[in-house]
């Protein structure tokens, strides 16, 4: 990667001289002495452990998906009731906002259909995606799903269902 130093300097001098001057000043964040050597050793150690660990397959998560299926059905029913021609559509008590759906999903993340999210992730991600191999552990999936759910709106959810 070639640094774009000259163009950035010109851009800052024009738009924000204060930031241009500040950039020239030394100091700021530091790291403990020898940190990067330690980091490399630590990562290599963890990588060696990875090699010894038996891979965990996504299908091991199926028991959780059984619970998730009931959740998806519940959301599906809610969306069905949203249909304008459905008699229940005009009942105020059944109205659910996108925020409420989002909140519900966040609170029930452990019960959500992992397979569906993985499919969604695979479609959205390019080669940088972390779902290209099926050896992810639960914390990884949990973390990635939380990120994905931030971006899923009601329309996308409807499409997935």
């Amino acid at each position: 990667m070639k640094k774009d130093t000259d163009a950035l300097r010109k851009e800052l001098e024009k738009e924000a001289p204060f930031l241009a001057r500040l950039k020239e000043k030394p100091g700021g964040m530091t790291v403990p002495e020898g940190y990067f050597d330690q980091l490399q050793q630590e990562v290599l150690k963890r990588a060696a452990t990875e090699n010894q660990r038996p891979s965990r397959r996504v299908f091991q998560l199926w028991p959780r998906m059984a619970v998730a299926a009931s959740f998806v059905a519940a959301i599906g029913l809610s969306i069905f009731l949203f249909q304008p021609d459905h008699p229940a559509a005009n009942q105020e008590s059944l109205a659910i906002s996108a925020e409420e759906v989002d909140q519900y999903i966040s609170q029930h993340i452990d019960d959500f259909d992992l397979d569906m999210l993985i499919q969604y992730a695979s479609a959205a991600e390019n080669e940088g995606g972390l779902f290209n191999d099926a050896t992810l552990d639960d914390p990884q999936l949990q973390q990635y799903m939380e990120e994905l759910l931030d971006d899923i709106d009601l329309e996308t959810l409807e499409e997935l269902l």
């Binding site: 980091l39 630590e42 080669e127 972390l130």
Partner: peptide
């Protein structure tokens, strides 16, 4: 950064060189 580098290690074989 450690988690990031371990993910790189796990997934480097899937890097296809498109970027």
């Amino acid at each position: 950064v450690q988690n990031c580098l371990i993910k790189v290690y796990r997934n480097i074989h899937s890097f296809e060189g498109k970027s």
